Simulated scan of single mutants.
Amino acid sequence: MLLLSVCAVGLVSGLVPVVSIEVYLGGLVAVSDATGSPGVAFAVSLAAAVGQTAAKVVWYLGAARSMESRWVARKLADPRRRAGFERWQARIVGRPVMSSMVLLAAATVGFPPLMIIAVVAGSLRVPLAIYVPTVLVGRTLRFWLLITGVGWFADL
């Protein structure tokens, strides 16, 4: 039940920016012994990351779908905007390592913000085969570091 609730909060927090999974995980560790063992800490981190990744895929798909809208088509009719978009698309699509590094940084340290990167990745059509595992690994690492760090301070 713990992992399901953590995943659900991760999903909600990934969709609604004012809900913080970090605060939830920090509180969970501070008030419970549920994350005392390394295996449980990793499982909780992974559950939170699965929820967050699913939410970021929703943002990604929404952005990808918006590229087909009339409003975006009108904006990209401007030659300068079109050239800028195509330049960024060539940089990202032609360089999977670079796009993976940006995604990993956003998912792990939060800079650039992952929600913005999710929208940009969807707009630029970064392959889901790169996007999903990179975000999942980065988020899992972020949450594991948070849980173990709070757990360490709670043990003092």
Rank of each mutant, 00 (worst) to 15 (best):
M1G: 14
L2A: 06
L3P: 04
L3S: 04
L4Y: 05
L4C: 10
L4F: 10
A8C: 08
A8I: 11
L11W: 02
V12S: 07
G14A: 14
G14C: 11
L15C: 01
L15K: 01
V18E: 13
V19W: 06
V19G: 15
I21Y: 03
E22D: 11
Y24T: 14
Y24F: 15
L25D: 01
G26K: 08
G27F: 01
L28T: 08
V31G: 08
S32I: 00
D33L: 00
A34C: 05
A34G: 10
T35C: 13
S37K: 06
S37L: 02
S37E: 07
G39H: 04
G39I: 00
V40C: 00
A43K: 05
A43Q: 07
V44W: 00
A48I: 02
A49W: 09
V50W: 02
T53I: 04
A55E: 02
A55P: 03
K56H: 07
V58C: 10
Y60A: 02
Y60T: 00
A63R: 08
S66N: 11
S66G: 04
M67E: 03
S69T: 14
R70Q: 14
W71R: 06
A73F: 07
K75E: 12
P79N: 09
P79M: 12
R80N: 07
R82M: 11
R82V: 03
A83Y: 02
G84R: 11
R87I: 00
W88Y: 01
A90E: 14
R91Q: 10
R91A: 09
V93D: 12
R95D: 15
P96E: 10
S100M: 12
S100L: 08
M101Y: 07
M101S: 15
L104T: 11
L104H: 13
A106E: 07
A107F: 08
V109M: 15
G110Q: 12
G110A: 12
F111R: 06
F111T: 13
P113C: 12
P113T: 15
L114G: 04
L114I: 13
M115N: 13
I116Y: 15
V119A: 05
S123I: 13
L124D: 03
R125L: 09
R125K: 15
P127D: 00
L128R: 13
L128K: 14
A129P: 12
I130R: 09
I130N: 03
Y131N: 04
Y131P: 02
V132T: 06
V132A: 10
V135A: 04
L136T: 06
V137R: 08
L141F: 12
R142Q: 15
W144C: 13
W144T: 15
W144R: 10
L145W: 10
I147T: 05
I147H: 03
T148W: 14
T148L: 08
T148H: 12
G149M: 11
V150Q: 08
G151C: 12
G151F: 05
W152V: 13
F153S: 13
A154W: 08
A154P: 09
